[in-house]
Design a protein around this nucleic acid. Structure first.
Length: 637
DNA sequence: CAGGAGGGGCTTTTT
DNA sequence: GCCCCTCCTG
């Protein structure tokens, strides 16, 4: 351990060795944060003889959790039992244990954004509200806001919205489902309801560490505080300059006011940057220093001066993409690994132009996110079958698959089924079993419904004898879904079939790696998985991703594209000063990902979907970057 | 009454 | 460019 500690600078060492009481580690970009966190956990176990079971570490993504797991494993040279998870996954696990205490069955489904929108649309149709007057997306934002802040529905002023909120939650309860924010909120509720459970976890997790603390929301903050209250060994790590999730309810306040919440806090600032060149760091610091709302700190470094930041002013977005492609070709010729190159953009749809261009230039690339695998229709369909088998009350999934592939059970029929269920206070799934009582449905349709129900029942019965892969195979065969995809010979169906095959393969891996896991475990993991989790660092491909996804990563060479007013900062963030500052932080995050070389590009014309090309303005943040660290990229020809 | 075809609308970021 | 909704057909 001493050997390890010797590798750290004095501040880092202090961050590892102060194990008692509340600690705030303000870790600037590239200051060796991950190393400090992993060493800290290893130190607790090895030098302080803390039982690994008594440590909880919360990360922002599953990917980060996985990396931390393996790093600690390497440091300790053995298996360990530290809980390293995201907030959502931590809460899901806690709820699997104690949910029944607050009226949730433990096979609850986890609803993602799209499932949530389905439920909201159901509410609107039930309540006869025009979706044009209140858009589902807006309502989702209202609902999430309430839950993220642990506020109550009664705080909603609009009668209509308050009503939707209540009906929405009632439906989730009927479906035995929780949305993302419920996961956190319900655990807080559980802790408030059952002191024994809270005490159990307080006793269990004597040492708590929360990474990316600047991106926690109110609910997560309260949860953390409850857990840490007894032993008070709470270490939070973050950087207010990298807070980029306020739109998801994150409160930068949580990190800025930590010392007020815990007056005896040890504050440690990690301000030496080991990642980027001086010029890159200078640009990043200059940009972010324009923010009012931050803890002041100064990053410094001993690193090389490095190349100037290359700024390219393109006539249009196609030229921009071509510039990036050509620069990448040049780099490749110089022997640069393509995996060390990343292209960042503000919004997902920007990836398309780069993809098209890279294909013509034959540049291998990998897009993180965009068309998210687990959100593709065919994948969601297969998973919906599994979700119904796991939790037949899950009406969103049931509705999704009852007519996929087509069983001639359409909209009208489903309306009748829902109405019947509503009237007799039973679930949709139960209605399927007494469909003969609904005379309004013709006998042919009733027969088809009964066949469907029989198939699901059979799958429910047999699931216990199979692993997840075998079950899914049974599902796609019995349901006729696989053959329906095979029948058509369009390109689209081919891709869908390929995707389903890929899903099946991943299930096979899952079943092999985690033989003890059940269907419930699998579905939970898949529901909480993010794009970045599935991304593997490759040496062969250029990485394309949003600025948000770039957080926590680093690359030798970075392209920040679409450096325009309206994209960076995004036009929807320009009214509000706080949101505007967040856009600046987003840029800061992007710049600080680069180790050696940074390109920034701006397209004077960009196709907006409807009207043809529209003219753009250079980002106002451009003028915040000191002239002397930049140069022009015009000399490409 | 299911389901395909065609028109209109809209695109931030994500656990 | 894609998704959703509507309208029309079978």
């Amino acid at each position: 351990m001493d050997e390890l500690l010797a590798q750290l600078n004095p501040e880092q060492r202090k961050a590892v060795k102060v194990t008692k009481g509340p600690i705030l580690i303000l870790a600037g970009a590239g200051s060796g944060k991950t190393r400090v966190i992993t060493y800290r956990i290893a130190y607790l176990i090895k030098s302080k003889n803390i039982n690994p079971k008594n440590i909880l570490a919360i990360t922002f993504t599953n990917k980060a959790a996985g990396e931390m797991q393996s790093r600690i494993q390497t440091l300790l040279g053995s298996d360990h039992k530290v809980w390293i998870r995201t907030f959502h996954s931590t809460c899901a696990k806690m709820l699997r244990g104690g949910a029944e205490r607050i009226g949730i069955k433990k096979n609850f489904a986890i609803y993602d954004e799209y499932d949530q929108l389905s439920v909201i649309k159901e509410c609107l149709s039930d309540l006869d509200i025009d979706a044009k007057a209140f858009s589902p997306a807006y309502i989702a934002a209202v609902i999430n806001n309430i839950k993220e802040n642990l506020s109550s529905g009664s705080a909603i002023e609009s009668d209509i919205l308050r009503n939707v909120y209540n009906v929405y939650n009632k439906k989730l309860a009927e479906y035995n489902a929780l949305d993302f924010d419920d996961l956190i909120m319900k655990v807080v509720e559980l802790f408030k309801t059952d002191e024994d459970i809270l005490e159990y976890y307080q006793e269990k997790f004597r040492y708590i560490l929360v990474d990316e603390y600047q991106d926690t929301n109110r609910a997560q903050y309260v949860l953390t505080k409850m857990l840490a209250e007894k032993h008070r060994n709470l270490c939070v790590v973050g950087d207010d300059d990298q807070s980029i999730y306020s739109w998801r309810g994150a409160e930068i306040r949580n990190i800025l006011d930590f010392e007020e919440d815990f007056p005896d806090t040890t504050v440690i600032k990690l301000q030496q940057n080991y990642r980027s060149t001086r010029r890159i760091l200078k640009a990043a610091s200059a940009v972010v220093s324009n923010n009012e709302y931050r803890k002041s700190k100064t990053l410094w470094c001993d690193n090389e001066t490095g190349e100037r930041i290359v700024f390219f002013d393109a006539d249009d977005s196609y030229t921009e993409a071509a510039y990036v492609a050509r620069k990448i070709m040049e780099l490749k010729l110089k022997g640069v690994n393509l995996g060390e190159i990343a292209v960042f953009y503000r919004v997902n749809y920007q990836s398309r132009l780069f993809e098209e261009c890279f294909i013509t230039y034959r540049i291998p690339y990998e897009v993180v996110g965009s068309l998210r695998f687990y959100e593709r229709a065919e994948i969601k369909n297969v998973l919906a079958y599994l979700r119904v088998i796991n939790n037949p009350l899950d009406a969103v999934s049931l509705r999704r698959i009852i007519n996929v592939p087509s069983r001639k059970i359409g909209h009208e029929t489903m309306e009748k089924i829902s109405a019947y269920g509503e009237k007799h206070r039973i679930s949709v799934y139960e209605v399927l079993h007494e469909v003969d009582n609904i005379k309004k449905i013709n006998s042919g349709t009733r027969k088809r419904i009964k066949n469907f129900a029989k198939m699901i029942d059979l799958l429910i019965d047999t699931q216990r004898q199979m692993d997840i892969y075998e079950l899914a195979l049974q599902v796609v065969k019995d349901s006729g879904y696989l053959s329906s995809l095979s029948e058509d010979r369009t390109e689209r169906d081919y891709i869908r079939r390929k995707n389903v095959e890929e899903l099946m393969l991943s299930m096979k891996d899952y079943a092999r790696e985690r033989p003890e896991a059940n269907l419930n475990d699998y579905l939970e993991e898949v529901s909480l998985r993010s794009d970045i989790d599935d991304w593997n660092e490759s040496t062969e491909r250029v990485n394309l991703m949003t600025l948000h996804n770039a957080k926590g990563l680093e690359f030798d060479i970075v392209f920040i594209t679409g450096f325009e007013d309206g994209l960076i900062p995004h036009y929807k963030s320009q009214q509000d000063a706080k949101q505007y500052e967040e856009e600046r932080r987003l840029l800061y995050v992007g710049i600080t990902r680069a180790r050696k070389l940074l390109h920034m590009t701006y397209a004077r014309q960009r196709d907006m979907f409807r009207a043809g090309p529209s003219y753009t303005e250079l980002s106002p943040f451009y003028h915040e970057i000191p002239r002397d660290v930049m140069c022009s990229g015009y000399n490409i020809d």
